[in-house]
């Protein structure tokens, strides 16, 4: 009964914090045309190691200009996918954003104070070399963001 009292029955709804086009304009000014990375078995294997599960799609778009590459990924926190964007420059995360949040709890991952922790992070031995502080009540969303950040490094390594 305690669990029933504590649980909230919020309705599933997309909350768009930033559209893809607005994000790309913020990063690049005039966005470059999208490029495409095909997720072959090599990429799939590396992504599976980063995400802990197979990557769902066979083709992914990314945007590259002036040494910066933007990756937009979806990853389920608890029940619904979080759409997040990561900008990488010289093997370092330049910035991270939550574009769309769909879960009923854990939307605190959208706050700049949380997202700033990703800036300057690299990947060492498959892990981010900066500790990412958790958020109470948003553990699964924080973990999803961490997985997506590592996946962005994998994709950046394979992008032509």
């Amino acid at each position: 009964m305690l669990a029933a009292l504590l649980s909230c029955g919020g309705a599933f709804a997309d909350t768009v914090y930033q559209t893809r086009d607005d994000f790309l304009r913020e990063v690049f000014g005039t966005p470059p045309p999208a490029q495409v990375l095909w997720v072959d078995s090599g990429v799939q294997g590396a992504l599976k190691a980063a995400l802990g599960h197979p990557f769902a799609q066979a083709r992914l778009r990314y945007w590259r200009k002036n040494g910066k590459t933007a990756w937009i990924l979806d990853e389920i926190g608890k029940e619904y996918p979080i759409t997040a964007a990561f900008v990488l420059e010289k093997d370092v995360i330049d910035s991270a954003r939550v574009l769309v949040y769909r879960e009923t709890r854990g939307m605190e991952v959208r706050y700049p104070s949380f997202l700033r922790q990703f800036s300057g992070a690299r990947v060492r031995d498959g892990r981010l070399d900066k500790p990412i502080d958790g958020i109470s009540g948003a553990t699964l969303s924080v973990q999803a963001m961490d997985r997506m950040a590592r996946a962005a490094f994998v994709l950046d390594g394979y992008a032509p």
Partner: peptide
Amino acid sequence: GRFVESLHDAD
């Protein structure tokens, strides 16, 4: 039949 990609209005 493997999923390749979803395109939305921005695409």
